[in-house]
Amino acid sequence: MIVKALAFYMFSLVAVGAGVLVISSRNPVHSVLFLILAFFNAAGLFVLMGAEFLAMILVVVYVGAVAVLFMFVVMMLDINFVALREGFLQYLPLGALVGLILLAELLVIVGGWTFAPSAAGVGAPPRAAIANISNTHALGKILYTHYIYLFQASGMILLVSMVGAIVLTHRRREGVRRQDIGRQLARSAKASIELKKVEPGKGI
């Protein structure tokens, strides 16, 4: 039990700390790296709650795709982040207000559970948790049986979006140097290396 509590505090402290560093660090690349750290720690928290599927998805989707995409944007586009940051503090009152409203709403919900214990049941899952089966297994069981139609249809929709993105953006460019493995392998040392005798004191 104590190990679990320690792990919880470790993950949550690192997650919160990394979250603060995401918005406070000056270098955008560092921000993205801290974001990845925050995602990993959030995944650790999910594992502690027994939601290992969510943890995997978080790592695969957010770290694997979204964070890398951020990294591409940060490193490949010439955005002046210092200029973006100017006047940052003038939004502080509005941001603080939104934060306060969210906090108040959370307090109302948690307070509701304390004052009316029966209300907690409203948020409970409609079905009891399945015993001795991991939730990845349980999801797979329902996704590939009951929801197979929707699952396959979603796959087709993703295929459509892929085809669409390629149709709308792919252009055949002239003068691109593509790798041609056949030509690379066909080259011989004899044809591509030329030995020259350089006389001292003269160039080639």
């Binding site: 979603s154 087709m156 929709i157 459509v160 979006s161 085809v163 669409g164 149709v167």
Partner: peptide, 28 residues
């Protein structure tokens, strides 16, 4: 899929598959 939908989720997926293809060919 839209015509044969008998569920709100199936309806939405059919509609979305149709619409996504149409958005692309409108900008073809």
């Amino acid at each position: 899929m839209m015509i044969s939908a008998n569920d709100l989720i199936a309806l939405y997926l059919g509609l979305e598959m149709q619409s996504l293809s149409l958005y692309v060919i409108a900008a073809f």
